[in-house]
Design a protein around this nucleic acid. Sequence first.
RNA 1: GGGGCUGUAGCUCAGCUUGGUUAGAGUGCCGCACUGUCACUGCGGAGGUCGCGGGUUCGAGCCCCGUCAGCCCCGCCA
Length: 583
Amino acid sequence: MRSHRAGSLRTEHVGATVRLGGWIHRVRDLGGVVFIDLRDRDGLVQLSFDPKWTPREALAVAGSVGQETVVLVEGTVELRPEAARDATMSSRDVEVRVSAIRVVGPAEVPAIPVSRKEGEELPAEELRLKNRILDLRRPELQRNIMLRHRLLQRSRRTLADLDFLEIETPILTKPTPEGARDYLVPSRVHPGEFYALPQSPQIYKQLLMVAGYDRYFQIARCFRDEDLRADRQPEFTQIDIEASFVGAEDVYRVVEQVLVALWDEAGEPIVAPFPRLTWREATERFGIDKPDLRFGFEIRDLSPFVRPDAAEFLRSALAAGQRVRGILAPGMAGLSRKDLDHLTAAAKGAGAGGLIWARRSESAWEGQGTKAFGLEGLAALGGSAGDMLLAVAGADGVTSPALHAVRSDLVRRPGVQPSTPHAFCWVVDFPLFEHDAESGQFVPAHHPFTAPHPEDVEFLERDPGRCRALHYDAVYNGNELGSGSIRITDPAVQRTIFRLLGIAPDEIRRRFGFLLDGLAAGAPPHGGFALGFDRITMLLAGATSLRDVIAFPKTTAARALFEGAPTPVNAADLRALHLRVED
RNA sequence: GGGGCUGUAGCUCAGCUUGGUUAGAGUGCCGCACUGUCACUGCGGAGGUCGCGGGUUCGAGCCCCGUCAGCCCCGCCA
């Protein structure tokens, strides 16, 4: 039916007779002549209707079609009479002089606009989600969805070229009641029994290693029944990778190649290898395990500079073994009272008791911080005129998030320039366990299949909190792109971990027996990674929400507004599944 | 589970501070005019359960209580 896409026509097509199909984006009816912008996934082209070349019936159609109607047109490609300068049209230099037009898909007046005026706000997100097909027609979303396609293809090609096998794992899986809540699926043929949708293919991919498929990948859909955010959806996609006979270095190299390929696909050249930071270093210098390395403003330990006659709360914090840490921010002395209040609120919001500051004017330091650190202390810090010192006292668990909040605020201020557009890094040597204050238990910092750091195995039993893991995160501009680890392959070690996590032997058997049996069947050393594909696409598309890179996303209440899910089911269906709904 | 913001015409918003006649604007839609526009232009018109429920009041879009939905954040997300 079509010879070309509307948005693909260029000057090289001048003179050609073309047949196009697309949607009516905009109509400009001047009475005698009519102009229509025709849209398809390649973009827009101007259709020109003129009695000189357009039959009367076709002119009548052009003057009466409504927005979003689907038409087939035939005509010839011509250069526009004057040098057209409409940069919004991909085919701006040419137009199609129409000889025939036919309406093939009449459209109701759209509930939300597809073509917007310059500067016109987007409709409310609720309406965009309810009218998703109209929203998906917008060129911005079409670009995002097409970029997503290219990134998917490029990751497949890159990994296949590296000799990775794409292998699918089940969507109906075994519940592993740990970590996030599972989405459950009732079994009809086994009353009272349930499948779970996978939170990730973790165990399956490890078993594939045991089975000898030594390089695996999957573009895997994962499901977690947790509360949502702008960057979190109940179902999401990850590029899941696992390889045998590898160490962390091998995994870094593979993941770096994938990321370089993806950024290249989006037109952003980057270089590998990425710098590395230990988890301890990251939290010490940046207050967080996913530092944004595009900016300075590093955190320093100011404890040694606190004067003996400093305020009581500072001295008692030090006496309690806590620290005073802060950021010496170059050129920030101009922050107003209001700015400082804002920064203080940010620090307090992250748990700090308050924020101490001192600013260095041309000649002297001023502010409450001068008393805390004294002029000698401030001099020893090495600040120069125009600098601002911002400090927080407390346990590291308090000062780190507080100073991260302060730093995040600072880097968003006008005039603060990133040193580079793309700052990747590896954060390595994460702790194996975290202590859960609520239960008093150790819980896995990531998942219970992560191998302990070989140097720390001795601490496993006597000081689990001190044990590092062979776990690593890929971080980009302050965003976690994904994480991975070298896995435990010794069933005895795996049992020990389960035991330390307080899981009873029979429970271990019931939940993880199939994994332990697998490891006992002859397991190669292996490890892998999972990249958050939606988040990567969002970052590369310049979008601010995952919803803008997913064709049919859910709301923050996990509802699908367009199709209307979830939904109650009728009593007969429930009976067949052996379920009864209580309220 | 908790906190915040938003909800008025198909769409984007104003009106709420200080309750008071017929709730406005832009755009879209409908009609008329217009032969090179590109946010076409000009003239005319239709279009509203002010999210929903309750309360206060002589009187509520506006004040109070509740509720629903969307968004953002904390908890949570091995």
